[in-house]
Simulated assay, not measured.
Amino acid sequence: MRNLVRTYLSAFNELGIETWLMHSALLGWWWSKQLRPQDLDVSMHISEADIFYLASYYNVSTFSFKNPGIPRATRYLLELSPYAKDREQADQLHPADARWIDTKTGLFLNVYAVRYNLSRPVGEGRLRRLSCKDGSEMVDTDLFPLRVTIFEGVPAKVPFCYRELLAMEYGAEALEGSDDTL
């Protein structure tokens, strides 16, 4: 899973796709700047504009990376859902907009596009509501501007209000005892 995350972050950085950690990956970053040992379901977020870009130019593309400690390069497949461009969740069993897949092991991480929620009213102070197919909801000022950091030894980004988002998802007690440094 660590190689999966490292190669995903590196590839998306090379493609100019702005991606950021969410859910358990963000919690792992909070505690150790790494995945937690129990993380088997990793989710990353990207913008709606970037999912359209990937759908247009990179669907079913393979990427090759030389990972430390592995003699030969590993190939990864970027596969977009047929519903990636749809705002609504059409596939209840597989809501991810894309997957980054290790072609040798079959391990994958899910990629979700974050979209402005047109059905929800603009919030207090003209805050714009965002949502994605993994059920996440937030306001745009919770995410942007993204903060640059390191995760699993490679450059990564996290939401601007990472502490508040983690507390909403996992409870404040899940954050107690960390030194909270980017």
Rank of each mutant, 00 (worst) to 15 (best):
residue 48 E to T: 03
residue 31 W to E: 04
residue 70 I to Q: 15
residue 46 I to G: 09
residue 31 W to Y: 07
residue 45 H to Q: 12
residue 57 Y to K: 11
residue 25 A to C: 11
residue 38 Q to E: 12
residue 16 G to T: 15
residue 68 P to V: 14
residue 15 L to S: 05
residue 34 Q to P: 00
residue 67 N to V: 13
residue 17 I to W: 00
residue 32 S to W: 07
residue 43 S to Y: 12
residue 45 H to S: 13
residue 39 D to Y: 00
residue 12 F to A: 01
residue 55 A to L: 02
residue 59 N to L: 04
residue 22 M to F: 12
residue 46 I to V: 14
residue 61 S to R: 11
residue 62 T to W: 06
residue 23 H to Q: 09
residue 22 M to L: 14
residue 11 A to C: 11
residue 26 L to W: 00
residue 18 E to Y: 15
residue 38 Q to T: 13
residue 68 P to Y: 15
residue 53 Y to E: 08
residue 23 H to N: 15
residue 33 K to S: 05
residue 58 Y to L: 10
residue 61 S to K: 13
residue 36 R to M: 13
residue 56 S to Y: 00
residue 48 E to H: 01
residue 16 G to L: 14
residue 15 L to W: 02
residue 15 L to H: 00
residue 35 L to S: 01
residue 26 L to N: 05
residue 10 S to M: 09
residue 58 Y to H: 14
residue 12 F to S: 01
residue 27 L to R: 09
residue 20 W to M: 05
residue 48 E to D: 11
residue 47 S to Q: 06
residue 59 N to H: 11
residue 31 W to L: 09
residue 34 Q to C: 11
residue 66 K to N: 15
residue 45 H to P: 02
residue 24 S to D: 15
residue 60 V to K: 11
residue 19 T to H: 14
residue 39 D to I: 05
residue 10 S to E: 10
residue 30 W to P: 03
residue 62 T to A: 09
residue 19 T to N: 11
residue 46 I to H: 03
residue 40 L to N: 09
residue 10 S to Q: 10
residue 62 T to G: 03
residue 56 S to K: 08
residue 27 L to T: 01
residue 33 K to Y: 02
residue 44 M to L: 14
residue 14 E to T: 10
residue 14 E to M: 05
residue 49 A to R: 08
residue 26 L to Y: 04
residue 49 A to N: 09
residue 61 S to P: 00
residue 27 L to P: 03
residue 70 I to Y: 15
residue 59 N to G: 02
residue 40 L to P: 01
residue 11 A to S: 10
residue 20 W to L: 04
residue 20 W to Y: 14
residue 29 W to Y: 04
residue 43 S to L: 08
residue 21 L to R: 04
residue 23 H to G: 13
residue 62 T to P: 06
residue 70 I to N: 14
residue 27 L to F: 10
residue 69 G to F: 03
residue 27 L to E: 01
residue 54 L to C: 05
residue 50 D to R: 04
residue 47 S to Y: 08
residue 43 S to W: 06
residue 60 V to I: 12
residue 47 S to I: 03
residue 54 L to V: 07
residue 56 S to M: 00
residue 64 S to T: 15
residue 31 W to S: 09
residue 63 F to T: 07
residue 35 L to V: 01
residue 24 S to I: 02
residue 44 M to R: 09
residue 21 L to D: 06
residue 10 S to K: 06
residue 59 N to A: 10
residue 11 A to N: 08
residue 58 Y to S: 08
residue 21 L to Y: 13
residue 69 G to H: 11
residue 58 Y to I: 08
residue 30 W to F: 12
residue 57 Y to H: 13
residue 28 G to F: 05
residue 56 S to W: 00
residue 13 N to R: 13
residue 52 F to D: 12
residue 23 H to K: 11
residue 29 W to E: 06
residue 55 A to C: 03
residue 53 Y to G: 00
residue 10 S to W: 02
